Computed example of a mutant assay.
Amino acid sequence: MNPEVIIVGGSYAGIAAGLILARARRAVTVIDAGLPRNRAASHSHGVLGLDGISGTELLKTARQQLLDYPSVRWIHAEAAHATASPDGVEVRTADGQVLAARKLLLASGISDQLPDLPGLAERWGSTVLHCPYCHGYEVGGGAIGVLGGHPMSAGKAPLFADWGNVTFFSQAGEISEEERVAMQQRGVQIEISPVIAVQGDQPTWLEVELADGRRIAQRALFVPATQAMATPLVQQLGCALVESPLGVLIEVDAMKQTSVPNVYAAGDATTVGNITLAAAEGVRAGIGVHHALVSEDSIG
Rank of each mutant, 00 (worst) to 15 (best):
A143S: 07
A254K: 05
V5W: 13
N274T: 09
I15C: 11
A217I: 03
L117Y: 10
A41I: 03
A254C: 01
A225I: 07
G149M: 05
T271N: 11
P3T: 09
H130S: 02
E207V: 08
T270I: 11
Q218I: 12
Q64K: 14
V234A: 10
S170I: 00
A240G: 06
L221S: 10
P151E: 14
A182D: 02
R284E: 04
A220P: 03
P132C: 05
S298A: 07
V89H: 15
K60H: 13
P261E: 13
L117C: 02
S259C: 06
R219S: 10
P151V: 14
R63D: 03
L48Q: 12
I75H: 10
G300Q: 14
Y133K: 01
D68A: 15
A107P: 02
A217T: 13
D297T: 07
P158C: 06
V188K: 07
L277G: 14
K256N: 10
K256G: 03
G187A: 08
L237Y: 12
A228L: 13
T29S: 11
R123K: 15
V242P: 00
G142N: 11
R26Q: 11
S42W: 04
A220G: 04
L59V: 02
Y69A: 01
P3E: 10
Q218Y: 09
S126H: 15
G46N: 02
V248P: 15
L210M: 11
G149F: 05
A94G: 00
L105A: 08
Q235Y: 09
F222R: 00
L105Y: 04
G267L: 05
S54R: 11
V128L: 14
S85H: 03
M229A: 14
G10K: 13
A240K: 14
A217E: 15
P224N: 05
A80M: 05
A157S: 06
T204Y: 06
G155E: 02
G213V: 09
A143G: 02
D297W: 05
I20D: 02
V283D: 03
I175P: 09
A197R: 01
V263C: 10
G300S: 15
S298K: 04
G213T: 09
A82H: 06
S11L: 13
A157R: 01
G282Y: 15
A182E: 04
I175K: 12
Q97K: 13
M183E: 08
P194W: 08
L66R: 13
G46E: 03
T231A: 13
E78V: 12
A16W: 10
L106N: 12
L104N: 11
